[in-house]
Design a protein around this nucleic acid. Structure first.
Lengths: 246, 246
DNA sequence: CGGCTCATGTAAAAGTCGTTCACATGAGCT
DNA sequence: AGCTCATGTGAACGACTTTTACATGAGCCG
């Protein structure tokens, strides 16, 4: 059994060469499997083919590894949200919804990152770099909300963009955390998490007075801000955001 | 140092008499302090004044203790939501908002339960009793949504109650989990989590066409369902749910 | 009342982790 | 070629989880 370790060592020499990265990747895999709580420093070392003490040359302790992963996660998260937002193209509402979907997609496709970022219980404010990365990611949502708020139909009090951003974030996180991941996803739902969130956001936006009927595809750069129905009469598109009531 | 244990033993005899309960209480305290992840079976035993092996007479393993706490948490949660809902008195919307506040209050006041229930990463469907308790709690929200949906202003497609319930749950959980607990609460917000959630729910309900201006206190048993403005013109109460725009 | 029995507790031990320390190795510079 | 320092090793400590064999005594039965 122990010739295996020798084997490993022979293959790669005494020095690993890229241990830090290997540990991060190993941890990512382990967290995806067993959650941040179940993840083990020793396991990551074993997976990288080094002794249990080796990781300490690269991370102060287990928490620092976790925190590094969370930080990296926020960076990728930010990148994906930025791409989804695409600076509000082709129109603000469409882009905004795309951001919502990107949020869920990230939570679903990168469970390890999402776990480390939001469910590992590590204090965000422990590491300044982590906190900064987290804020940069949130700022994408905030910027999008800002642009959306500016489109508020005239005649309505303009909603504070910060509040909108927090609302959207809480919806996305709520859906992701309750319905979109792990065994919670096994709860039988009447619709997919993506549809659930989309409907939720649409209803919310309508509550703010935004027109939320399907936008005409094609032209319409930015403001056709107030299609007449937005401020007169019911703004409900036939069928509503939740499809046909059966 | 070890006479202490003898002392303890003298006080209570060889048999503890109520160890199971003592362990649950101890665990509750520990989880509140250090989170479900940091909580230790051995610590709970120590706190109850018994050896590390004693707990195994009452719980198969650490997870079963955690699961017991989660179950108990869902039961108390259900009780609080039921009380808050108060069968929809004095009117459905008021009661509904009270449920939202009760949700946050529970998350804030019973961090240990909330943690075990939603953030400990234990599979809900592992224990059938746990799953049942969880469903009973959710059913309160569902029943409330059902009643609310029935009040949907005529002329609007009636929203599926199940969807509404899931939406509300995701909002409440999102706010609780992101802003209302632990160090996440340290994020500087423009408003309290309670206000944040209340505004969120109000905007959402307005998006569904519900009148959300402050209801006249006093009489008005159930339906004054559609104050005229609900289906004609802007339903925005002056100031909106978020107070004065500065 | 005496004795049995079984639920409940204990101590000891094995296996895992996290973490530290003294020591080994070898990559890269001089 | 030799030095040095970053990087890896092995051993060791204490804490935790879980199992096992053994101890205690509360409650019942005759």
């Amino acid at each position: 059994m122990s010739w295996r370790k020798e084997q490993r060592r022979a293959e790669r020499g005494y020095h690993h060469g890229n241990l830090k990265e290997a540990l991060l990747q190993a941890a990512l895999g382990l967290i995806a499997e067993k959650g941040a709580a179940g993840f083990t420093f020793a396991d990551a070392a074993r997976m990288a083919g080094v002794s249990a003490a080796a990781p300490y040359r690269h991370f102060r302790d287990r928490d620092e590894l976790l925190s590094s992963i969370a930080q990296r996660g926020f960076e990728q998260f930010e990148a994906r949200l930025t791409a989804a937002w695409d600076d509000g193209r082709p129109d603000t509402v469409t882009a905004f919804e795309r951001v919502g979907r990107a949020y869920l997609a990230f939570a679903r496709e990168e469970p390890a990152f999402y776990n480390a970022m939001f469910e590992s219980g590590l204090p965000v404010d422990a590491n300044p770099a982590l906190q900064a990365a987290s804020e940069r990611a949130f700022n994408i949502i905030r910027a999008a909300a800002e642009r959306l708020a500016a489109l508020a139909p005239p005649g309505m009090p303009r909603p504070p963009a910060m509040m909108m951003a927090l609302h959207i974030w809480s919806m996305a996180h709520g859906v992701a955390s309750l319905f979109s991941r792990g065994d919670a996803a096994r709860r039988k739902l009447p619709m997919s998490p993506d549809e659930l969130l989309e409907a939720e956001v649409l209803i919310y936006l309508r509550g703010l007075g935004f027109p939320t009927d399907r936008r005409p595809p094609g032209r319409s750069a930015e403001p056709p801000p107030v299609p007449p129905e937005a401020s007169s009469g019911s703004a409900v598109p036939p069928g509503g955001p939740w499809g046909k009531p059966k």
